[in-house]
């Protein structure tokens, strides 16, 4: 019985080990790497990815997938910038509208998936193109934000000794992270998400609100992607319709590398954070190296994702978690 329980944790343990090994490995090669400043930069540079990946964690835990994440980041980012700069809205107002739009699109996708029993990937793939189109429709050019109020948001930071500044976006990320852990582990909704991913048929027969949960998961992911878009806009001080290309893949990779099973039902929000950090380490390594080009990041992430997917397959085959594959017709 002990062995079986260990199996469940293998992906998460593997994730932590990979993160540690990578961090130390790169640290040994580049002495400047293991500084606190670089560590803080992991969070600053990847706050938006982390937030979106947390939304993705819930979706994948529920047994679904959301491919619209990257486009949603672009759309809400460009929308925020547009509303502030071109429409003269108050930044707070603009942010609220963006978050509302993201949640709404997520909600609609959830409804399409639930009520019409459509495959999540095709619905969210459509959402991906829809959002990208909307983003380009608003503006093809990057919209820089000069609004002083917004600038003051961006400049909000806690200064630590050693003149290390931790900007607001890092706190937003950490706040989302803590809230997500709370939701996942201490609310009925969170547990229903796990149950849905573990066995949607059982969840239905146990009387859980399957439909509501499923729709809420996509709405939540939409909301968090929109928040990621806002954070990205704060990070770059601009909204750009071509940002976030392929980001859905990075988000999925963070979740899967973080030990969440693609089939749903098993995983941890904390794992996703480590998954994001692993990608941050790889990216920083490539920057440190200087001779490697940025596209190596994509290849490396693809490779990591592949390895973890294969690891999951072997674990689930070994422990023979049989899950009903057919949908319920009642």
């Amino acid at each position: 019985m002990k062995i079986k329980i260990d199996r469940k944790y293998i992906p998460v343990i593997a994730t932590f080990l990979v993160a540690l090994l990578l961090y130390c490995g790169v640290g040994i090669r580049y002495p400047g790497f293991m500084t606190f400043r670089v560590f803080v930069n992991f969070f600053i540079d990847n706050a938006y990815l982390g937030i979106a990946a947390i939304g993705m964690t819930f979706v994948i835990l529920s047994g679904g997938i959301d491919l619209s994440v990257g486009s949603m980041v672009a759309f809400t980012g460009v929308l925020t910038a547009f509303l502030i700069e071109k429409q003269g809205l108050h930044p707070l107002m603009a942010i609220v509208i963006s978050l509302g739009c993201g949640s709404l699109i997520g909600y609609v996708m959830g409804c399409l998936i639930h009520y019409f029993k459509s495959a999540p990937f095709i619905v969210t793939l459509t959402g991906m193109f829809f959002c990208r189109g909307l983003a380009n429709l608003i503006s093809l050019e990057s919209i820089p934000i000069y609004n002083p109020v917004f600038k003051s948001f961006v400049r909000l930071a806690v200064e630590l000794p050693g003149r290390i500044k931790i900007p607001a976006i890092v706190f937003i990320f950490l706040l989302v992270f803590i809230a997500a852990i709370y939701i996942a582990h201490f609310t009925k909704f969170g547990r229903n998400v796990y149950a849905l991913g573990g066995s949607s048929q059982s969840a239905l027969l146990m009387g859980l609100p399957v439909g509501r949960t499923r729709i809420a998961v996509y709405a939540l992911s939409g909301f968090l992607s929109a928040l990621a878009g806002v954070v990205f806009t704060m990070y770059t001080s601009a909204g750009y319709g071509l940002s976030g290309l392929g980001m859905e893949m990075e988000a999925i990779a963070s979740v899967v590398i973080g030990g969440t099973l693609l089939t749903g039902g098993v995983g941890y929000v904390a794992g996703t954070l480590v998954g994001v950090l692993i990608q941050a380490i790889i990216q920083t390594f490539i920057t440190f190296d200087g001779t490697l080009s940025s596209w190596w990041t994509k290849i490396a992430i693809g490779l990591l994702l592949l390895i973890f997917i294969l690891l999951q397959r072997f674990i689930s085959q070994a422990s023979r978690i049989s899950k009903p594959t057919e949908t319920v017709n009642i």
Binding site: R191, G198, S199, A203, M206
Partner: peptide
């Protein structure tokens, strides 16, 4: 008809 991936306690109290 329980959720195999959750703990025994959760399965008894789910919902």
């Amino acid at each position: 008809n329980l959720v195999p991936t959750l703990s025994v306690a959760e399965n008894i109290f789910l919902g």
